[in-house]
């Protein structure tokens, strides 16, 4: 049984049997795959803490028949700041789930870029002025890596460049995968969402911003453009992935403050039934 070492981020884990876990790892050199962490649900296991989601590890794995087996690991970064803040935890969880949903198993070609992007995003999130800017940059750059980059430089329908032709962005058309000019928007039959020039330019900034320090200091425009960016990216991802990213709903509810609102949590009060835990 060959043993190898790799750097990995734990994306998720599910319990296996009495004391084991199956962990989904994103590794730099081997792509995304599942591995077994034996005994890691015992309180005295050396692997217990390290096999939790959001951990960045230096891991030793043994090749197994079906799944590789995690034999040893050293935590390189536990991202304590992301676990200690509920909003940052939701954003980091969403980032991990998005990568999990968009990355095929054992895809070694795109793995280094995707791994570096997620790791960098988690570091930046810890000290971000505006965590949503960091998450949107991650979404845009990840989409670009997997070939689903939104078209933001020219109209997705008539292909006229927004700046050169002096035409204005008015809407985002998720089905077409990009922003549409005001002329095309008038006759568009697809579902569209408002997208101002301010929002589009902020999206372009985030798409090409690679410097972690600049990204950590970047703040999204306040008010409507901020909501437009979130809506455009949400609809774009839904169209491209054709599946739900489950943590999206919680992140959206958190951003709207619905999760902290006791009145909305209290209503409606469903009476307990024997069949629903």
């Amino acid at each position: 049984m060959a043993v190898y070492n790799t750097h990995a981020i734990v994306l998720r884990r599910i319990p296996l049997g009495e004391t084991d876990k199956i962990i989904t790892l994103m590794t730099r050199d081997g792509g995304k795959y599942n591995a077994v962490a034996k005994g890691s649900r015992k309180t005295t296991s050396r692997l217990a803490g390290a096999t939790e989601p959001l951990m960045f590890l230096r891991a030793s794995l043994a090749e197994g028949m079906n799944l590789d087996i995690l034999t040893q690991c050293e935590i390189r970064e536990s991202f304590a700041a992301l676990r200690g803040d509920f909003g940052l935890y939701l954003r980091a969880t969403y980032s991990c789930e998005l990568l999990d949903k968009t990355t095929p198993e054992r895809d070694t070609v795109s793995a280094p870029e995707a791994f570096d992007l997620l790791l960098s995003t988690m570091y930046v999130l810890q000290r971000a002025t505006d965590p949503d800017a960091c998450v949107h940059a991650y979404e845009l750059q990840l989409m670009a890596q997997i070939g689903y980059e939104p078209q933001l430089i020219e109209c997705v329908r008539c292909e006229r460049a927004f700046d050169e032709a002096m035409v204005h962005t008015t809407v985002y058309a998720p089905a077409r995968g990009g922003a549409m000019c005001d002329v095309c928007a008038d006759t568009a039959k697809d579902e569209t969402f408002p997208l101002s020039a301010t929002a589009r330019l902020a999206m372009l900034d985030l798409r090409y911003e690679a410097d972690p320090r600049t990204l950590a200091a970047y703040a999204l425009p306040e008010g409507e453009p901020r909501a437009e960016i979130a809506r455009a990216l949400r609809s774009h991802l839904r169209y491209r992935l054709e599946r739900d990213v489950r943590s999206t709903a919680f992140l959206d509810a958190f951003r709207l403050g619905a999760m902290d609102d006791i009145d909305s949590l209290m209503n409606p009060l469903v009476p307990p039934t024997k069949d629903t835990p």
């Binding site: 803490g49 390290a50 050293e74």
Partner: peptide, 8 residues
């Protein structure tokens, strides 16, 4: 034998 997360 404790992992770093637990020790922290």
């Amino acid at each position: 034998y404790a992992d770093q997360a637990t020790l922290i």
